[in-house]
Nucleic acid binder design. Structure first.
Lengths: 221, 221
DNA sequence: CTTAAAATTTAGTCTTACCTAAATAATTTT
DNA sequence: AAAATTATTTAGGTAAGACTAAATTTTAAG
């Protein structure tokens, strides 16, 4: 049986919160899902009791996904990211507008729809923010990008991924030309405030940690 | 507040069942919605009690939409028909495949999404089956088409609308070339079985009432 | 190591939207 | 016009998934 929309949301958030290898806490999940902690406890107990179990759960120890749970989560994430790519490409959405729409659509599209948009887009590997799209057989590719914050003067790189949800920040980055696929070069590093002076096209900007830790790049050899 | 998916479904079905001017019966609604009659009674009582009321309801007398209810129904129908048009045009769905997908998507797309696909399609007036699409200000255009069954020998017409839900029938009609936009000419009428012999392109087919009452045309002057 | 604070869980409700079974009303048949 | 059939409504339940308030466990501070 296909999990309910609520369950899909729980699994997706648990996936995201456990990407660091640690179990997800009740509180963090509650915050991400805009739900009270007590509701989270109830739901994860239910998910742990499903057959097959979707999560691994020990009281007070947080929650992780089982392989069945991870598969279900990746399915939703694949839907979400393909939808974002597709909304941007075919309907002219900007990257700060797509999230909300994809958030609702991801739960209702058919596998046929998924295949059609994936094919129409040429089976893309990243969404408009540069996030990796799980493959059709539900494996998450490994991301080998580097945070911009770790680059130093004279290094060149291509922006691969921008990790930000706030539409205002996204619009700001867009206005600076800091979007996936763009080439940049680090002009200067300040060890005092960790600012990076970065050349983007013909413009030069000074970026703080707040931004440079959210941009992931592939360094030019 | 936006009505729930269930309520949207009820309103849409009530709209369809009352297009003939008569109130919709509990039983008919139950059949259309795949729900038990008792559930329908419960829901329509609730809809009649909303402020503003979405339906007009007298015990045992069936149900009709109020203007607020009709507006909500037309919104859903507009979503559905635009989605069908769009799935066919941009993702290569055939007209026998789109219904199911649109049925789920119609409840979750934003007004922004609606505007974008309407614009992308050039504000179409009919969906792939030829059904009229409610306008952006939620008026249903009047349909002035004629059932093919009422034509007689030597009359020519353009197919405007095909009223059928069964995918097998739709595929059959497609294979005969009987789709919206196509020109046809009636060669012969049989008053005994009401069959029409119809020329479609260079082919000639004999069509029974079962088909000719489901195809609506605009007669050539 | 004990206490205060924070996080988590339990227990008990609520809402939505469905269900079945039984009761009532409307319609059709005889 | 009464009886039988069909349609509709009422009454009482259930399952999901949320909530609040209270109890408990864990963690952090002194």
């Amino acid at each position: 049986m296909k999990p309910s929309t609520s369950i899909q949301d729980y699994l997706k958030r648990i996936y995201e919160l456990t990407e660091n290898g640690l179990p997800a806490s009740t509180n963090d999940l509650a915050r991400e899902l805009n739900v009270r902690p007590a509701s989270v406890t109830g739901m994860i107990q239910k998910l742990a009791a499903e057959k097959p179990a979707l999560v691994e759960y020990q009281k007070h120890q947080g929650v992780t996904l089982t392989s069945a749970g991870k598969r279900a989560a990746l399915e939703v994430i694949r839907h979400h990211r393909l939808l974002e790519a597709w909304l941007v490409q075919t309907l002219g959405y900007s990257w700060d507008e797509v999230h909300e729409e994809a958030e609702r659509l991801e739960h209702v599209i058919s596998e046929d729809f998924e295949r059609r948009i994936a094919a129409a887009l040429g089976n893309p590997t990243r969404d408009p923010h540069g996030e990796l799209i799980p493959t059709a057989d539900l494996k998450m590719p490994v991301d080998d990008t580097t945070p911009l914050s770790s680059l130093r003067a004279s290094q060149s790189a291509t922006i691969q991924r921008v990790v930000a949800a706030d539409p205002n920040l996204l619009r700001h980055l867009d206005s600076l030309g800091l979007t996936p696929g763009i080439q940049i070069e680090v002009i200067e590093y300040s060890e005092f405030d960790n600012n990076l002076t970065v050349k983007v096209g013909r413009k030069v900007n000074v970026l703080g940690l707040n931004i440079t830790t959210k941009i992931f790049v592939e360094i030019q050899k």
